[in-house]
Amino acid sequence: MSSIEEKITANFDGIEVRKIEEGRIEVKTKKEALLSTLNFLKDEGYGHLGLVSCVDRIEEGIFELVYILSRYLVGGEVAVDQASLIVKTEVPRGNPTLVTSVKVFETAEPYERELHEMFGIVFSGHPRLTPLFLERDIDLPPMRKDFDTRKYVEEEFESIPPVED
């Protein structure tokens, strides 16, 4: 049986596969090919979407979406060195839109909601992109690198006067 790296490169064009550490393989895919990649990997047995994350690469002007997939291994099957895949794709910071992966992995729903709130990424086709954590609207999504949390605290909370009796 061929390894998952070979399978991925055989099935997709322009995809980068590289081993980053023991048991972690990085798969870099294009934004358009994300859903088909995820679908393919799910059929290959990577049915557990552990995490959807986002890294704000502000100097390169992109958001790097990170999907971590692993296998549900059972019994005495000890994980081979292909335990987890780190699937990555990029969206431009100026226009952060991406198609939702909820149809492939149900787990992605709250994660994408969170990323919408924290990074301002719009997932088209998502069933509910409503606020998840925050109480008040913050102009700039707070997890972005250019959001200065200390300045925000200074302006919004420290400026409120103490109550004088």
């Binding site: 109480e135 913050i138 959001f147 605290v153 103490p162």
Partner: peptide, 20 residues
């Protein structure tokens, strides 16, 4: 005064400004 979350955008720092 916010403690270790003094610079968090989602925790208020001085509770006694809002309730006694």
């Amino acid at each position: 005064d916010g403690g270790m979350y003094w610079d968090s955008y989602n925790t208020i720092n001085h509770l006694d400004k809002y309730i006694p």
